[in-house]
Every structure is written in structure tokens, then in C-alpha cells.
């Protein structure tokens, strides 16, 4: 599948590029821009990033495969992330994790058949004092109870 950056995103890339003395350094923000546009990072997207920045494709690949927030497959419209690290776990995060898994009917890193939801068990999100927590796409939901989780998931359609 052909991938080309939109004019608007090319302008954003130009802005980002100014922050760094080398074009390689702009690769992380540019991958984010590409993920915004395309939803995930495919091989074609990596080729395009490499040619826009004038770097080798392998540099893009190495970054995309190292960092967990870049996705190489299409995730759901709502990417639900449940933190199960120690502070959350002490306050019942695994109950929340099981609840979300059962409710959505998918396992870790799976996407629901209609593409609405995807699920990820994440490491500490920096919300330890407000545990347990889940994040949906970019938004944090903290101090959760089972009822609140039910409510949040029901509101996502």
C-alpha cells in the first residue's frame, strides 16, 4: 500500500527537523507523525520516512521495533492500556485487567473483530498514587473501581 505524507504533515516534519542538528534525530517525532496519519507503521511508511529524512530505512526500522509505543499493525480505534505494575497491582489492577479482558473478549495485544478495541497490558504509566488506572488512547483514567471501568468502556462506541 502506497504511503505519502500529506502536505500538512510535511510542514510539521519541517518544523520538527529544525529542533535537531541531524536529520536522524528527527526520526522519533516523524514516526509519531506517520503513525498519526496512517494508524500504524508498515514497511511502506518506513520507506517514506527514510526518504523524507534522507536516512537509511534500517534506522527507521530499528527505532520502530525498539519502542513499544510504535505499532507495526493496526490497533483498535480505542487502544485500551491497563497498567498492572506493582503500585497498581497492590490496589487491584489484575482484577481490572481480567474485567477489561472479559468485557472486550480479547487478549493482550489483540484487536477486536470490528476494529473498535485493542488491548495492551502496559508497564508503569506514572499514575502510581492514583492506582488502579487505565489509559484509552491518550487519556488517563485514574482511581478506578470496577463500576467506573464498566462505565468508561460502555461510553466508548
Amino acid at each position: 500500500m502506497e504511503f505519502k505524507f500529506t502536505e500538512e504533515n510535511l510542514a510539521r516534519i519541517n518544523e520538527v527537523r529544525k529542533k535537531y542538528p541531524t536529520s536522524l534525530a528527527a526520526v522519533m517525532p516523524v514516526v509519531y507523525i506517520a503513525q498519526d496519519q496512517n494508524g500504524f507503521i508498515s514497511s511502506e511508511v518506513m520507506t517514506e520516512i527514510a526518504s523524507v529524512l534522507g536516512i537509511d530505512k534500517v534506522n527507521v526500522l530499528s527505532v520502530v521495533t525498539f519502542y513499544t509505543m510504535y505499532h507495526t499493525k493496526q490497533m483498535g480505534k480505542y487502544h485500551v492500556q491497563v497498567c498492572t505494575n506493582v503500585s497498581c497491582m497492590l490496589r487491584g489492577a489484575y482484577d481490572i485487567w481480567d474485567q477489561v479482558k472479559n468485557k472486550l473478549g480479547i487478549q493482550n495485544m489483540e484487536v477486536s473483530s470490528d476494529g473498535t478495541f485493542s488491548l495492551e497490558e502496559v508497564e508503569c504509566m506514572g499514575a502510581c498514587g492514583y492506582a488502579p488506572m487505565i489509559a484509552v488512547n491518550e487519556d488517563y483514567y485514574e482511581n478506578l473501581t470496577k463500576e467506573k471501568v464498566e462505565e468508561i468502556l460502555d461510553s466508548l462506541k
Partner: peptide, 8 residues
């Protein structure tokens, strides 16, 4: 400048 990490 702000540099955004990516989950590592």
C-alpha cells in the same frame, strides 16, 4: 525543545 519518548 521537548523530545517525546516512546515507551522505553
Amino acid at each position: 525543545y521537548i523530545h517525546k519518548g516512546a515507551g522505553a
